[in-house]
Amino acid sequence: MSNKTVYILSGIVVIVSILLEILFVHHHAHYWWQSLIAFDVFFGFFGCVLIIIVSKAAGKCFIQRDENYYGGEDLDD
C-alpha cells in the first residue's frame, strides 16, 4: 500500500469515527479528558510518537549493544 492510500483511509476512518462520536456517544466522563471529542486520536498519535522517540533515545544511550556483547555464538564451556 502506498503512503497516500494509508493516510487517506486512516483519515476517512477518523472522520467517520468523530462524526459517530458526536452523534451517538454519551460520555460517562470520570475525568475531563474523557468528554473531549477525538481525544483518543491525539492520545494515540502523540502517545505512539512519544513511545518511539523515548525508546529510541533510551536504546541509543543505555540499552543497545553489539550482538556479540555477551560472547555471541563462540561460547565455550
Binding site: 486512516s10 483518543d40 486520536v41 492520545f43 494515540g44
Partner: peptide, 8 residues
Amino acid sequence: QLLTATLV
C-alpha cells in the same frame, strides 16, 4: 480512534 492514530 486510538488504533487508527497509532497506525498513522
